[in-house]
Design a protein around this nucleic acid. Structure first.
Lengths: 239, 239
DNA sequence: ATTAGGTTATACGTATTACAAATTTAATCT
DNA sequence: AGATTAAATTTGTAATACGTATAACCTAAT
């Protein structure tokens, strides 16, 4: 097929082209982490573009976390922070947030948390145990009227277990999900108050299994726990 | 705590302030999805800033996928695409990619895929079955020399199962992981050739279980499959 | 009445120039 | 040598101008 009349007006703007070029240099490690980019003036000359177009490209790159711009100093290749990596995902969930998404999130927890507890039992460090036990203690003496704090503490318990897997991929994958749970508080966690005693007991059993590095028991106890949470959720949702 | 000597030179640039203001308007739905933003000229007047600062803010927002800018037409609140949401995560993984990350990814698959197969068996549609069966057929008649294609096809099989759960949260969480697997091809999947017969058999068993909506069998067959993959990986890695 | 064609107003893309503000570097002084 | 000051460098903001894409409107020919 001859490409005589191929597209001309692809409307890929100049600043986007510049953005891609610099991004490619970073991805290919030609610009290693922490490296200082040439100044705006030099880059303008290299690319033969105006400062306007160049700067708009740089703004995009900094918005995505690839570079850090320091006034008066220069521009540096930045290590993408975890917050940057998941902020887009968080924003996505934030805008898509509705009851449908809630049930999907509950479902994911129901599905994955037992396996995560299993891995946490294998890989947990002393530090994780400390965090978990402190969390339980705090949860116990938590003001019963402060539902919000209770739910957040509960949520943190589960997130701590995710982190105790010491698998960064799991942590990154699950973090956006847990950061969404506080938003679900008002939606249905209101009737959690009657569950407090059970929650404490369940958390303690899970904690002990993880402490003993008993993977199967950690799995089993967590499964029991999320199964019950699931029931509570369903019951509440039927109203 | 008195904030007498709080930071002054936080160097929050003007364009960042503008960015936040517009972002907040979008998050709070004051600017609903698809809404047309005021023109640059009007926004400049509203915020009382120069076009330069405003445009740099807009570039950031568009880089993050919150708005879409159409030359000659205007700027519109954009539905954040899934690709936008996970592109940051992909970039993060891309830059962090090393043998350590590989083993963590394998571990995550090992951990979650059986449960995902279980859910897929429950929720799969006819369309999913078609995709899976076509994938298996394609894999069978795949040129044995073309390792790359084989691995990608294998990868796609598992991604299709993730999608067959019909849980968008799972899909979003797992997509970045699967998009990383092709990069692992050259690292260790080279010795997969001897596994082709087994892989086909395993995939068929998994497919049949999902087709029959036999959740437990889907879980079991998938677990057997990933366990073996794990063994192959470990064996290869010991070399 | 419909449609092809052109006109015009609007809106975003790029370029240029100028100056402000923060930082770094170099020079100067003690 | 160390501290202080001055100069140079670098990014941030502003203002103006022109290019180019889009959409709405108008006109004339079919």
């Amino acid at each position: 097929m001859e490409d005589i009349f191929g597209k001309i007006g692809t409307t890929v703007t100049l600043s986007q082209k510049i953005e891609r070029k610099i991004e490619e240099a970073i991805r290919s490690k030609k610009l290693p982490l922490g490296a200082k980019l040439p100044s705006e003036k030099e880059l303008c000359e290299s690319f033969a573009v105006s400062r306007t177009a160049l700067r708009e490209a740089l703004r995009r790159l900094s918005a995505r976390g690839l570079i850090e711009i320091k006034k008066g100093s220069g521009m540096y290749v930045s290590e993408i922070k975890i917050e940057d990596a998941i902020s887009s995902l968080n924003l996505y969930y934030d805008l898509k947030f509705d009851s449908n998404l809630i049930s999907h999130i509950i479902e994911v927890r129901y599905l994955f948390e037992p396996e995560m507890a299993r891995m946490a039992a294998k890989n947990r460090a002393e530090e994780d145990l400390l965090l978990l036990s402190e969390n339980i203690k705090f949860f116990k003496q938590c003001d019963a009227d402060n539902t919000q704090l209770e739910v957040d503490t509960d949520n943190k318990f589960h997130l701590t277990i995710a982190k105790a897997t010491h698998n960064p991929v799991i942590i990154l994958s699950m973090e956006p999900i847990y950061s969404l749970l506080p938003r679900m508080r008002d939606q249905f966690y209101g009737n959690l108050s009657g569950e407090k005693a059970h929650t404490i007991e369940a958390h303690e059993k899970i904690y002990n299994a993880i402490k003993d590095q008993d993977s199967d028991r950690a799995y089993f106890e967590m499964k029991k726990h999320v199964d019950r949470t699931w029931e509570v959720y369903k019951k509440h949702f039927e109203k």
